[in-house]
Write a protein that binds this DNA or RNA. Structure first.
Lengths: 331, 331
DNA sequence: TTGTAGGCGTTATCAC
DNA sequence: GTGATAACGCCTACAA
């Protein structure tokens, strides 16, 4: 067993109380004895046991991060942003992948509570009643990233997804496009990306373009879904551009178009969403709506740590700016 | 404060020992009292405090994962593989990004020890003496992923990097290439990828091709480095193909070639390494050496958990198979 | 089958 | 300034 505070106390010829005092730099300790303690610590290679400390202080200095899937292109950067600031404030993170499976989410929430994390950063698309009531019951500091809670008022950091999509589609329209397809999240899904569909509709409406269901394909954010989706649309109708709710979808779309001998952007414009790393190296480089991904993680973590420290949040629902990145997949 | 074992005991009218027994399903408890306890638990919404349990049992059921950077394309999948099996065995993971910074690595190692993790999965390229002696001092179950320790004999899971590179370059040669460039990790770096350079040299040698330093560019695994590297090489000499030690480098190379009006694979073959997601959606799809990334994480975690349970490892240094994936970036 | 009590390694409140 | 000592919440001999 590793050396404990007792061993240090014995070695330095003082009580454990004194050792604890120098450890935490609290109260006043005689310079001389302090030196003795420090030496004993070094000699024994003593390291405080944080588990024991946590039991006493009721804080673990670890934070849970719940995400759908770290191997999705989007989350690593959020997690990196979060971990970087956690690290600054001496917190560690426990990472949990849920695949958006409600059971798994609930399970992780419970375990995190049992492990006494000081707070959780939560990414999910369905804050359904069961989850919400569990969260309320478990009672930990929590901030939502990428989504918002309706009634419960859990602090959050997001972008204005509806406006972002609106801006993207408007851009497409300004380029002279009139038959704009949509591939991505449907409105039935209660999450951030569903807002994008509303933005799409609004932009069409505002510009007196009619919504044609043949140009709409609802699916999740994977390249192969984009590939399939565009083929379905092409088999039904003609289009001049496509608005995708993720860069991965856009990549699938472009690959499908290429296989059909259709050029991007000469023949058709395609726009992505998120501005993931892939978007900047793909050929053609993707014109896309950029979310400040890293910042969403770091700001979310900053808020969470404030909450843990009972500090007041200036803003409970941060809406970060999005940006349209013009590259080569639109004319 | 949340309900504790005491509250449950009081509620059920038994001692805490009995509650503990039903909690851990140990010893024999009368069916009737057991039922009372279970009901009390449910009524109070009691959840055991794992921190307290850990202090007693000296196991936290959490494992540290140390990686260079989760936002690098390579690591999310390893982490996912690791977390999936950790989850199966009721472990959680603490994620630590080091950017390969030695100070950070040491810091995390110490904190993980203080937080009493049961073991660590370690990814680094430089197992330098300081780190090694710290590891020895800290004494935890550890497995190395992607790299091996020379002397210390820390269990590991890797592929045969030298052979993999040898196979890749041989493939290029068989396709009729004779002036094969190399862009990637240099041999000074003491890590897995350095072995790839040796494989490259060996393949040339075996086929009586001379090594031309003008065709070599050492750099780290980023697309922009590939972009720069190939331009440097092209300014000095002529080549017919390029072996890259990462897919990201290959992507940068291809983008640079395209900007120079050189076609891939018609004019030049380029081969990647790792078979990251990007490789399968990029245009042209990358011919590359596939590492079983997910498996490296999951197998590493399996080994680690065995070690934690004091079970014997059948194999201390797993060498997983690599595979040459033929796609469209080579003729 | 059940209860009592000691201890895991700390912190923090008392006295001295 | 320093030292006992009681928690923190749980597990586990040992008794009963």
């Amino acid at each position: 067993m590793a050396a404990s505070i007792k061993d240090v106390a014995r070695e330095a010829g003082v009580s454990i109380a004194t050792v604890s005092r120098v450890l935490n730099d609290v109260d006043v300790v005689n310079e001389e004895t302090k030196k003795r303690v420090v030496e004993a610590i070094k000699k024994l290679g003593y390291r405080p046991n944080i588990v024991a400390r946590s039991l006493k202080t009721q804080r673990t200095r670890t934070i849970g991060i719940i995400i759908p899937d770290i191997s999705n292109q989007f989350y690593p950067e959020i997690v990196r942003g979060a971990e970087d600031v956690a690290n600054i404030y001496d917190y560690n993170i426990i990472l949990c992948n849920t695949d958006l499976n409600i059971e798994k989410e609930m399970e992780y929430l419970k375990v995190l509570k049992e492990k006494m994390v000081d707070g959780v950063l939560y990414m999910s698309n369905s804050l359904e009643p069961n989850i919400l009531s569990l969260i309320k019951q478990l009672q930990f500091p929590m901030v939502l990233v990428e989504s918002k809670s309706k009634g419960e008022d859990i602090p959050s950091v997001t972008i204005d997804n509806e406006k972002a999509a609106y801006d993207g589609v408007t851009y497409l329209i300004k380029k002279g496009n009139k038959r704009i397809a949509y591939i991505g999240a449907g409105e039935d899904i209660v999450n951030a990306s569903a807002m994008r569909y509303r933005g799409y509709k609004k932009a069409l409406e505002k510009n007196n373009l009619t919504l044609d269901e043949n140009r709409i394909y609802f699916t999740s954010s994977r390249a192969r879904n984009g590939y399939k989706g565009i083929n379905v649309i092409l088999s039904k109708t003609k289009i001049d551009s496509i608005f995708c709710t993720s860069d991965e979808i856009a990549v699938g779309v472009i690959n499908a178009l290429r296989d059909n001998g259709i050029r991007v952007p000469e023949d058709i414009d395609v726009m992505g969403f998120n501005n993931v790393y892939l978007a900047s190296v793909f050929y053609p480089k993707l014109t896309t709506i950029s979310q400040p991904i890293y910042d969403m993680g770091s700001i979310g973590m900053r808020m969470l740590i404030k909450m843990i420290n009972k500090e007041k949040l200036e803003e409970r629902n941060y809406i970060l700016p999005h940006e349209l990145i013009e590259r080569d997949s639109c004319k």
